[in-house]
Structure formats: structure tokens, C-alpha cells
Amino acid sequence: MLREMVGYSLVGIGAFFYFLAGLGLLRMPDIYTKLQASTKATTLGTFSIALGVGILDFSFLGKAILLIAFVALTNPVAASVMLRAAYKNKAPVCKETVIDECGTMVDGNGGDVK
């Protein structure tokens, strides 16, 4: 009983974060904030849905944890690379932006190897 409650509420939390991702894509003003909203919410949504399904069905739990590990490895990197490409191509920022920390780094290069 408790197991089912925990599992279904985790799935519900995941669905809620997916909803937030969609809302963020619609409502946020520029590409940086749009991608921030969608990736953060998608990552967390996938984590909790996979964990919830794993708790509901214990035979799936090992696979769910592996799934979470792979999403944690790839999704943030993909978002970072996409945002960096947008920044390098000088995608416009919304007018509420106050600070550009990437441009004020040591070489103004945003974490490049060179």
C-alpha cells in the first residue's frame, strides 16, 4: 500500500515537471531561459517517473536506476552544448537580463579548452 502510494506520487511529480517544461517553453522569453526550463524539468521528470515505476514494480528497479544514470550523464551535457552554441552565435537575450557571466570569464570564452 505504502509502496504504491510512493510510486504513484513519484509518477505524478514527474508528470507535473513535464507540464512545467511545456509551460516554460511557451512562456519564457528567450532561448536560454526556454532551454533552462525544459531541460531541468525534463531531467527531473524523467528521474522521478523512472524511479516511481521502479518502485511500483521492483523487477524494473535496477533498469530504472540505470536509466536515471544514463539520463544524468547525457541530458545536462546536451543542454550545455546547445546553450553554448547559441551563445557563440550571439542569440538575442531578453531585455530583462542583468548579467552575462559567461562573457566576463577569464578569456571570455565560456569554458573552452584553448
Binding site: L73, V77, V81, K88, D112, V113
Partner: peptide
């Protein structure tokens, strides 16, 4: 390509997989 530290390090982890 302009190299990116984050991508390069994570490639080392993900590529064998």
C-alpha cells in the same frame, strides 16, 4: 570545431557505452 571542456570530458565517459 571549438572544443568544449564539458563535452570532451563527458565524451570520455559516454563513448565506451
Amino acid at each position: 570545431f571549438e572544443e568544449h571542456k564539458v563535452l570532451r570530458i563527458s565524451t570520455g565517459i559516454v563513448l565506451p557505452l
